[in-house]
């Protein structure tokens, strides 16, 4: 998802000013990374150029903050196309974690220690996310849950790998 698609989706519910767009974006999409105003206006400029939005009114002095943007027919089609296209599941085949395990085994170091250290790191991260989740609203919770489920999956892989370390070592060295 790009910032442009997000803006189009936000505008579909009604015309907005640039400032409103930034606020709405930060609230729903930009959990960890709020937008810079520069990003807002370059994106809007690009959308205007491509005919996906129009300016439907200017108030006051006509500065960038005072323009109200409306999504066009083409813009709505764009949003529809984005939603119709499922996200490609990430394959996770290139895992830095796995590489570290193999590295440890190849060099005769303790792969278990690598896994233990990683588990601690993961659990620390999960505890931090859980704390945030308990203090946040539903949106925060869902975002945190997304991360928690992924970390949980990683942890399960860690446990699973830990159970097969001896076997793996034989294969790697053999």
């Amino acid at each position: 998802m790009t910032i442009a698609t997000a803006f189009l989706a936000l505008l579909e519910s009604g015309p907005r000013h640039g400032y409103d767009l930034k606020q709405a974006y930060d609230q729903h999409f930009g959990v960890d990374r709020p937008l810079h105003y520069a990003q807002v206006y370059t994106t809007l400029a690009k959308l205007l150029r491509n005919g996906l939005v129009t300016v439907d009114g200017v108030e006051g002095d006509g500065g960038p903050d005072r323009k109200r943007y409306t999504v066009t027919e083409a813009g709505v089609t764009d949003v529809q196309r984005w939603l119709d296209e499922p996200e490609k599941p990430q394959q996770y085949l290139q895992s830095g974690l796995y590489a570290k395990v193999i590295g440890a085994l190849l060099t005769g170091r303790s792969a278990a220690a690598v896994l233990d250290a990683q588990r601690d790191e993961h659990l620390d991260a999960m505890r931090e996310l859980t704390r945030r989740k308990m203090d946040g609203d539903l949106a925060d919770r869902l975002i945190c849950d997304h991360a928690l489920f992924h970390l949980d999956a990683d942890l399960r892989w860690l446990e699973h790998t830990a159970d097969h370390l001896d076997e793996l070592a034989e294969q790697v060295r053999g």
């Binding site: 659990l123 999960m126 505890r127 489920f149 949980d152 399960r156």
Partner: peptide, 14 residues
């Protein structure tokens, strides 16, 4: 046995 539940703790042992 669930890490997501264990994450409610301040500290964990295995």
């Amino acid at each position: 046995h669930d890490a997501r539940i264990a994450a409610y703790a301040d500290r964990g042992i295995v």
